[in-house]
Design a protein around this nucleic acid. Structure first.
Length: 644
RNA sequence: GCCGGUGUAGCUCAGUUGGCCAGAGCAGCUGAUUUGUAAUCAGCUGGUCGGGGGUUCGAAUCCCUCCACCGGCUCCA
């Protein structure tokens, strides 16, 4: 007998060696039909695999992450089977389940495959799925595994097998297709009802740009057509929030081929938005004891040789600027920190002066690879809301925690509640990518881990994501279609102070080395604005939006009153303007609603006579009539509430 | 940088297999209308069909090449 503990704590006994599917059947027919995988003691298993020891289990349907995992993984195999039958001789790399669907990296050899071929593969997948083929798990020896793929001529699978331990290798087979795979998989293909292959792209084998590029096909499948339709609708809705589209509609920013790719041009409305964001942060920083500084857009090459940036990024950057003097070279500033180090060195510093916090909205230029550019989220010229804190070792933890407070405050004010907090540490295997001593890295990494823990942050640790001079705490936010972007970042750095020979005189009269914290709560104004646009769909908070109120006169007769209303509002620090066009009121409402102006004031004869305004709130329709004074106070209160 | 796709007016898009001076809606301009809660009507302007080269009697359409953009990969101080 085996004791099975269910998620609700119930325990049932079964005859020994019972499969997940049988357990599901014992609970309900419906569950058995919908079950996709089973989690056994924290490990995801096939439903058909027998459980032989007492276990805690949960049965996963498509509603559970672990269910989707098996479902999409099996779908990847189904796609591979379809591809193999349509394109015999295709070699397969890896084909995992991902957050939304799955992909498979394949080598089609000399056959050229484009997205026009995807529907054909979809059809084949559905055809194969209808055969209700079972996914059969089989343990194989390493020799057997090697022999199979040698005969098949699939060098990718052979490479993967060569790295596995004998005795841990499993094959999965469904229909005509056999794959090296850890599993788990569905019981059979019958649950795969709706298929959409979404895109096709090149992907380097094992993520190594020096190796062969395979063809990656992305897809997603669902147990019901309706779910696929919903997913497609969701994607279409997400596209409407794309910051590149909204940025154009609301006239926030643009690009010009003549100016150069990845070099954004901020239009008047976008500039207003950005300046307001900057003013907001400046106010916060002032409260936290930051001092503004300014530095030029270029700096002598030696500055970056000293910092190590030149050695690390020099060849992939905008090339040095030369002058008539043959020995003189400048770099377009890729970072603000070296400049700030030089400001620190302006005069001798005492331990009493620390911490020193230099803040600058510093514009930097980086030669990002052309294929990497993306709207405002990845550009070649951008402005960091940068600051460098120079502090003593005993101040480090406290200073770091204060920066976390700033980031959290900003995210809260802008309603970014779905962010990921990531601790980015050194690569465990390859330390050659980093500068500085192990001892200092250790200290820096521990400081971040401790500060994050003391602040109660739920963090994920990523190895190999650190900057070359120090570890980071990164705040990541998703965009409209789920891509993750790093916004806020806080970094601990023992290395640049050393390279720039920064010092302060301690209580003991001796020279000591300060520690630097690099930090940018927004990250960059460009990327932050982009993510803000996608989160709000262009409906910015009232305090931030470029135009807060538009006054709509019913006809030209009431232009004068409309102007009076607008002037009154502006005098009282409410940003308003008049829609002076000779259009009907319906038209004016429609156009200004689409421009996401928070308040629309309709004014005609009645309002003009009584000094009132008919208020309409964006997306919420008519709100009734108010006196102009009351409305002004109301708007100001709303702004106050947002910024509390 | 690599793989795949796309590129027609300020914007959104027609223009199938090469064939009369390249079209529509919106925007813009002019005029009429003077409007009460999501598009008033009419007229006009606007395009070297991404750039360059080629094939052809003839190219937006076919070929080559470059550029930009889109989706990935790689990268991200």
């Amino acid at each position: 007998m085996v004791k099975i503990t269910f998620p609700d704590g119930n325990i049932r006994e079964y005859e020994s060696s019972i499969s997940g599917l049988d357990i599901a059947k014992s609970l309900s027919q419906k569950l058995a039909k919908e079950a996709l995988s089973i989690t056994v003691n924290g490990e995801i298993w096939d439903l058909s695999r027998n459980i032989t020891t007492d276990s805690t289990i949960s049965i996963n349907t498509f509603d559970e992450k672990d269910g989707k995992y098996a479902y999409w993984h099996s779908s990847a195999h189904l796609m591979a089977e379809a591809i193999e039958s349509l394109y015999p001789g295709t070699k397969f790399g890896i084909g995992p389940s991902i957050e939304n669907g799955f992909y498979y990296d394949v080598d089609f050899g000399d056959t050229k495959v484009t997205d026009a071929d995807l529907p054909k593969i979809e059809q084949k997948m559905l055809e194969l799925a209808r055969k209700n083929q079972e996914y059969k798990r089989r343990e194989v020896s390493k020799d057997e595994a090697m022999a199979y793929f040698t005969q098949k001529g699939d060098e990718y699978k052979l490479e993967l097998i060569s790295e596995l331990q004998d005795g841990t290798i499993t094959f999965y087979e469904q229909g005509e297709f056999t794959d090296l795979c850890r599993g788990p998989h569905l019981h059979d293909t019958s649950q795969i009802k709706a298929v959409k292959l979404t895109s096709l792209a090149g992907a380097y084998w094992r993520g190594d740009e020096k190796r062969k590029q395979l063809t990656r096909i992305y897809g997603i499948t669902f147990p019901k057509q309706k779910l696929l339709d919903e997913y497609i609708t969701f994607l279409e809705e997400a596209k409407k929030r794309d910051h590149r589209k909204v940025g154009k509609e609301l006239e926030l920013f643009t690009f010009s081929e003549k100016v150069g790719m990845g070099l954004p041009l901020w239009l008047p409305k976008g500039t207003q938005l950005r300046e307001r964001l900057q003013a907001f942060l400046q106010k916060v920083q002032k409260e936290y004891g930051y001092e503004p500084v300014m530095t030029p857009h270029i700096g002598g090459k030696e500055l970056y040789v000293t910092s190590g940036h030149y050695a690390k990024y020099g060849k992939d950057s905008f090339q040095p600027i030369t002058t008539p003097n043959p020995n003189e070279e400048f770099l377009l500033k890729p970072m603000n920190c070296p400049h700030h180090c030089e400001i620190y060195k302006f005069k001798p510093r005492s331990y009493k002066d620390l911490p020193i916090r230099f803040a600058e909205f510093g514009t930097v230029y980086r030669y990002e690879q052309s294929g990497e550019l993306h709207g405002l989220t990845r550009v070649r010229g951008f402005t960091q809301d940068d600051a460098h804190i120079f502090c003593r070792p005993d101040q480090l933890l406290d200073e770091f925690k204060k920066v976390i407070d700033i980031v959290l405050y900003i995210f809260k004010t802008l309603s970014f509640d779905n962010f990921i907090t990531q601790i980015s540490l050194r690569d465990k295997e390859d330390r050659s990518k980093y500068i500085g001593s192990d001892e200092n890295w250790e200290k820096a990494e521990n400081a971040i881990i401790q500060a994050a823990a003391e602040k109660g942050l739920e963090t994920v640790i990523e190895y190999g994501e650190a900057a070359f001079y120090g570890p980071k705490l990164d705040f990541m936010v998703r965009d409209a279609i789920g891509r993750k972007w790093q916004l806020g970042t806080i970094q601990v750095d023992y290395n640049l102070p050393e390279r720039f020979e920064l010092e302060y005189t301690g209580e003991d009269g001796k020279k000591h080395r300060p520690i630097m914290i690099h930090r940018a709560p927004f990250g960059s104004m460009e990327r932050f604005t982009a993510v803000l646009i996608e989160h709000t769909g262009g409906k910015f908070p009232l305090w931030l939006t470029p135009d807060q109120v538009v006054v709509l006169p019913i006809s030209e007769k009431f232009q004068d009153y409309a102007q009076k209303v607008s002037q009154f509002l502006n005098k009282n620090d409410v940003r308003a303007f008049v829609d002076e066009r000779n259009e009907k009121i319906g038209r004016k409402i429609r156009d200004n609603e689409l421009k996401r102006i928070p308040f629309l004031l309709v004014v005609g004869e009645k309002e003009a006579e009584t000094n009132q305004v008919a208020v309409r709130r964006q997306g919420q329709g008519d709100q009734g009539v108010m006196s102009l004074e009351d409305f002004t106070i109301f708007v100001k209160n709303e702004v106050e509430k947002e910024l509390n």
